[in-house]
Every structure is written in structure tokens, then in C-alpha cells.
């Protein structure tokens, strides 16, 4: 009977999901922190973090990953911005199918896309390695850069551009003073969707470099998979989580990214 009362109030319908979120989203994230400050015996320790900053392998991989992530992100912006601009510009493109064609690869399994990159390099008789890694990452993440930029440019009010024209702005000035500043939020969400996943990828780097170059994600995975280094793996994950938190705070993005934007 009490239950019937609870169901009556519709705001209470959220209860099962709140329980689920606490159990399967919030609690697991807290567990990462708990494990990070423990040794395999279960006692409190800072040793895992000391190990990260003193042992060169993880730290070097971390710095290398950030470098690769920056290169990938910059290339994605350089290649993706013009594409997004053209797609959103009614004078240059009217086709919705064209937009769809650019979004489509986002929905193909990332492993499949990486293997496809390997296939392309094999086909062209190019060696795998760092070059293939950067090509593969740009190839994997480019749609994630194009889509948010396209979205913001498309939403720019036409009247702003007309107003700028009426006030005597040239085409270049319209771009530098109106379109570019207004498209920056799109670039920021694009960076969010490219930079972080690049650092944390693990399978892609192994496949594209024949296991020669590894990204931070691989190190996390390796440590996580063995029970005696699990706590160290948790500490590395916590470092990753902190970067995510800083990134979201800086970009002011509340994460309301509708992946693919297809719904």
C-alpha cells in the first residue's frame, strides 16, 4: 500500500535508475580511487603513485601519449574544420547525405577501422609504425571532430552574417569576426572527443605499430589484467580520471554530447 503511494508520485520513478547509477557508475569510480591507494595486501599506500613518477616506462608512455594525442588533435582540427565549414555552408553543400557520410564511420567498430587501416597500409606496401599510428588515429577520430564543429557552425544565425555584411565586412572579415569565434565551442567539444580517447586507446596502437609503440591505455590495460599489479593499474586509471575531470572543467562541457547526433 505504501508502495502504491510511492509509485503515484512520478518523480519517484527515477529511484531504480538512481540505485543503478550509484551501484554501477558512482561506486565503481570510487573503487578506482580506493584501489589506487592500496597495495595488493589491502593496506594504505602511496607507493603506486611514487612508482608512476619514478619508474620511467609508464611516465614516458604517458608523455609520449600526450604528444601523439596533441598531434592527432591538431591534425583533426586542420583537416576537419574546413570540412565542417563546407558541410555547414548552404552555398557550398546542400546534401544531408554528405553530412551523413562523414558521420557514418563513427559507428563502425574501432578495431575494425584500425584493421582496415592496416589493410590499407599493406595494400600500398607502406610499413606499419608511428606514421601508421598517427594516420590510423586521425582516421579513427576525424568524424568526432567534424561533427561538433559542423553542428555549431550550422546553428550560427544567418542574420549575424548578414548584419556583418551590411556593416561592410568582407568575406574574410565575416569569417574571422563572426563564424570563427562562434564555432569555438564546437572545436572545444571536438577536442574533448578526440584528445582523451586518444590517450586512453589501447588496442589501436598495438595493431597499428605491431606492438612497437604503446599508448597510456595499453599500460593501464597490462597492469589491470594481472592481479599483482592491479592496484598500480588503478592508480594509472585515477590519473586518467583526473585529466578527464580537468578537461571537462576547463572546457565547461557538461558532457551533453549526443554521440553521432543521430537521435
Amino acid at each position: 500500500m505504501n508502495l502504491a503511494k510511492l509509485v503515484q508520485k512520478r518523480s519517484n520513478w527515477v529511484a531504480p535508475y538512481v540505485l543503478f547509477l550509484v551501484m554501477f557508475v558512482v561506486l565503481p569510480l570510487l573503487l578506482i580511487a580506493v584501489y589506487a591507494f592500496r597495495n595488493p595486501a589491502g593496506n594504505f599506500t602511496l607507493q603506486n603513485f611514487v612508482k608512476f613518477f619514478t619508474q620511467s616506462e609508464a611516465l614516458n608512455t604517458f608523455i609520449y601519449s600526450i604528444g601523439i594525442a596533441i598531434i592527432t588533435t591538431v591534425l583533426c582540427i586542420l583537416l576537419g574544420y574546413p570540412a565542417a565549414y563546407i558541410l555547414a555552408n548552404a552555398k557550398l553543400n546542400r546534401s544531408k547525405t554528405m553530412v551523413m557520410m562523414f558521420i557514418l564511420p563513427m559507428w563502425i567498430n574501432v578495431l575494425m577501422r584500425s584493421l582496415a587501416t592496416v589493410a590499407l597500409f599493406d595494400f600500398l606496401h607502406l610499413p606499419l609504425g608511428e606514421g601508421a599510428l598517427i594516420f590510423g588515429l586521425v582516421y579513427d577520430f576525424l568524424p568526432f571532430m567534424i561533427y561538433p564543429i559542423y553542428n555549431t557552425i550550422q546553428k550560427i544565425e544567418g542574420s549575424y552574417i548578414e548584419a556583418a555584411r551590411d556593416l561592410g565586412a568582407t568575406n574574410t572579415q565575416v569569417f574571422t569576426h563572426v563564424i570563427w569565434p562562434l564555432s569555438i565551442p564546437g572545436i572545444v567539444s571536438g577536442i574533448m572527443m578526440v584528445f582523451l580517447p586518444t590517450i586512453s586507446t589501447f588496442a589501436i596502437s598495438e595493431i597499428l605499430t605491431l606492438n612497437n609503440k604503446r599508448l597510456f591505455g595499453s599500460i593501464i590495460q597490462d597492469n589491470m589484467m594481472m592481479s599483482d599489479t592491479m592496484n598500480y593499474g588503478a592508480a594509472l586509471s585515477l590519473i586518467m580520471l583526473i585529466i578527464i575531470a580537468i578537461n571537462s572543467a576547463v572546457s565547461g562541457d557538461d558532457g551533453n554530447i549526443n554521440e553521432g547526433g543521430l537521435i
Partner: peptide, 19 residues
């Protein structure tokens, strides 16, 4: 609700693995 959408999937995977 947004957390699982922002987190890279490796973090989601590891956190649930630990759970």
C-alpha cells in the same frame, strides 16, 4: 547520467571490473 558518456570506455570498463 552524463558520466558514462564522458568517460573513455577503458575507464568505464576498469571501474566495473573493480566492482
Amino acid at each position: 547520467n552524463n558520466i558514462p558518456m564522458i568517460n573513455p570506455d577503458i575507464i568505464t570498463g576498469i571501474s566495473l571490473f573493480l566492482l
